[in-house]
Nucleic acid binder design. Sequence first.
DNA 1: GCCTGTGAATAAATTCACAGCG
DNA 2: CGCTGTGAATTTATTCACAGGC
Lengths: 231, 231
Amino acid sequence: MIRRIPQARERGIPDATVARLPLYLRALNGLAERGTATVSSEDLALAAGVNSAKLRKDLSHLGSYGTRGVGYDVQYLIYQISRELGLTQDWAVAIVGVGNLGRALANYGGFVSRGFRVAGLLDADPAVVGDHIAGLTVEHSDGLEAVIRKRGVSIVVIATPATAAQQVCDRVIAAGVTSILNFAPVVLTVPDGVDVRKVDLSIELQILAFHEQRKVSGGPMMAEDWAGEAG
Amino acid sequence: MIRRIPQARERGIPDATVARLPLYLRALNGLAERGTATVSSEDLALAAGVNSAKLRKDLSHLGSYGTRGVGYDVQYLIYQISRELGLTQDWAVAIVGVGNLGRALANYGGFVSRGFRVAGLLDADPAVVGDHIAGLTVEHSDGLEAVIRKRGVSIVVIATPATAAQQVCDRVIAAGVTSILNFAPVVLTVPDGVDVRKVDLSIELQILAFHEQRKVSGGPMMAEDWAGEAG
DNA sequence: GCCTGTGAATAAATTCACAGCG
DNA sequence: CGCTGTGAATTTATTCACAGGC
């Protein structure tokens, strides 16, 4: 029988924990900006919106970075989590598809601030190519492979229409990219070893609707005097 | 702290299942468009990107809507899932914050197509108020409460800067909204009974970076400061 | 035979509760 | 003492595997 060796150190961090580390990091940065030097698991958990037992368990997967009876040193913990997430490195990101969403992403401050650098904006539409967005010039997606290779892009954000997503996906994988963030509402087919994360705006709304439906017995309020102004 | 929504007594569908139903729904709609009448759990699972056992278990929580030896009737299953998610109703959604992201959301086809209707676009910036986006006119956020009441808004999307998010959140809750989709990178504090879902663009990138870091032993090509870590 | 639906088994995640250190 | 770190207990989710209907 093959038994998994529990790597107490830095290997084998649960997915659920990894997904929360950015949350803790953001809460810690907020504390740091307000000049807080140390924080207890209770307070940090509150700021991050989780419970303290979970927070301590999560952090314990990284190592013993707290001090019993005191709490965690904010700056030190920021560094440790950043290192664990790989944010002490500089990641070049290319955004493919410069529609409304692509523009929003390019201008999103959170990308640049944490180890990510938008190294390329690409679009297939000649009407968009040449636009200046967030200090970059939109390039034609014909040059996708060249941009990836020349600028060391390791993460690609797909913000194209659904119909183009798989094709873009195939091309960037062929160019060596193994990390993709997909905003197109389509399931991408990728070979083993390629990591795809998906953000689906409408799915979140649908989940909300499910819960909303359960709350209100009579369904949503009726829009009585809604006069559509479209058209 | 996270409060469980007044859970349905009759059928407690697991959260993990609810989160996947929209995925199945999209896969089914794709099949329907191509004229497929029935589909096996195997094929539907493939289209949705999950495994078939999970799919069958998920669907079993809704009822027995399949036919042994045959599969599921596509149209019927679409209806059942839609009903379960509350998408057979018409949900009025207001988007607060009409920056790049807000515009992207307003133009996002997936909203309108599935039981959601953008009933209001609001922003605090007078320079934006009056803009026409996706067939709507941007209104000043002073009128937030009025818009919510008059147009029967039951779900609010917060796409404001982080600094404004909590204030907007408080106002919409005071106006009776109990379902919020938050794109601002901040943890919202809400009373019990209010359901908040969060979409955080940078968190997804950070999770990708974590996995990417583990794949590539040498790190990304453009790593500038390679602090010698004893590995 | 084929494929669903589902108990049982397994795995993962969360929470409890307290030992142990500062 | 207070607060972390963590085994143990609990809850939740996934996967297996096959009974049972078509």
